[in-house]
Design a protein around this nucleic acid. Sequence first.
RNA 1: UCCUCAGUAGCUCAAUGGUAGAGCAUUCGGCUGUUAACCGAAGGGUUGUAGGUUCGAGUCCUACCUGAGGAGCCA
Length: 438
Amino acid sequence: MPESAARITIEKAGSHAGELVEIAGWLYNLRKSGKIAFPLLRDGTGILQCVAVKSSLDEAVFESLRNLTQESSLIVRGRIRAEPRAPGGYELDVEGAEVVQRVPEATPYPITPKDHGTDFLMDHRHLWLRSKRQHAIIRVRHEVIRAIREYFDTNGFTLVDTPIFTPAACEGTTTLFEVDYFNDEKVYLTQSGQLYNEANAMAFGKVYCFGPTFRAEKSKTRRHLTEFWMVEPEMAYATLDDVKQVAEELIVFVVGRVLENRRVELEALERDVSKLECVKAPFPRISYDEAVETLRKKGSAIEWGGDFGGTDETLLSEDYDRPVMVDRYPSQIKAFYFQPDPVRPELALGVDVLAPEGYGEVIGGGQRIHDLELLEKRLDEHNLPREAFEWYLDLRRYGSVPHGGFGMGVERFVAWMCGLEHIRETIAYPRMLYRIRP
RNA sequence: UCCUCAGUAGCUCAAUGGUAGAGCAUUCGGCUGUUAACCGAAGGGUUGUAGGUUCGAGUCCUACCUGAGGAGCCA
């Protein structure tokens, strides 16, 4: 190219109106007439309509653009101009173009602008990510993760990541992925960083871990992945009420950030943002007892002592315009480490936060047992091997204090933000019961 | 693991038990303002696999494979 032009991104095109610029990207789509062509250029930050006019372009350049194939990579040089007829309000008058790689006609880009089925799209997930909708979802995910980190980083939490290979289970062993370690030893992919988090909280006060977790559940629903990302805060000297407070603040903060910074993406997803604008403190707080009563009035078959099904969660949350917090579940349906309620010891000081619009449980947590004898008793009741938990019991021997925390599933949160039907679109390469490729 | 539904061209879908078709994509031709552009033409098929019923099966029956939706379990 003879004259140098500043390389810009499409996201910033509006602020370069009238300037000669260069954009490097891929051909999203092409509309053409005989002597004028409209290549839609995609660069990862947005999509820009370019205008190539035969009479004002080098013949070879015009022909190369006019016959370009979908998703070919190219660098375009030209002038940005405000144009009401163009999608996005701006377009680029092409003065020069260099095709970096031309997609051959014999092997055209498989994802056309028309409809495709789920199976086909999932098989082409590596290419599907280039589509507008998937692009918007992943950018919302990034915003959610960034906001989560910022919330904890600015509120006195220290990031202490927990191991992914673990020797024992937090909960049952049926939902663990087993891995061959050295010397014929079996280890498991983590289900939760919680036990380690508790140790870290005794060292740092307030901590969080953030990483992938794995569940070998044979769940085949729109809310499940076998590999998903979870953020887990844990706080020393904290009670159930403190846990609820942090959960509420976190959700309000993250939703606020998404609304503030990802309007364009939410619009592309046709998300009803008024639903998200309702998410303000305080969240309604109800007890498990009240929840069961409400559900039975609504016709659910749930009995006291049972856990909620997916439809129960939807029934519970439909009365509220913001997340609802349900606490004090029967201990029998909760993990061994939950602190019992001092007034009614058959209840666990645990809380679940149910997102509105049927998005279900996005947070689960509570206060942990800090008494050594009680914890030992619970390990026995759950038939868990004492020796594997010796280090965990140490936390109750050396300066034990009331403490608690929770886990928040990133993908369910993103699905809620984006208003998605299925969780599989919230992560670049979803891992599900029957799908581990690409 | 269980229940329900679906598998036909590269993709999305049609086709009373009786000659397998359309749109998109691809190729060729046309068009100077297109908005998933449009108009004309061409190529493209072992109807998921294996059996069975029938004069005749994409269509009916059985088994299996693959996928989707739901249940249980969970974030």
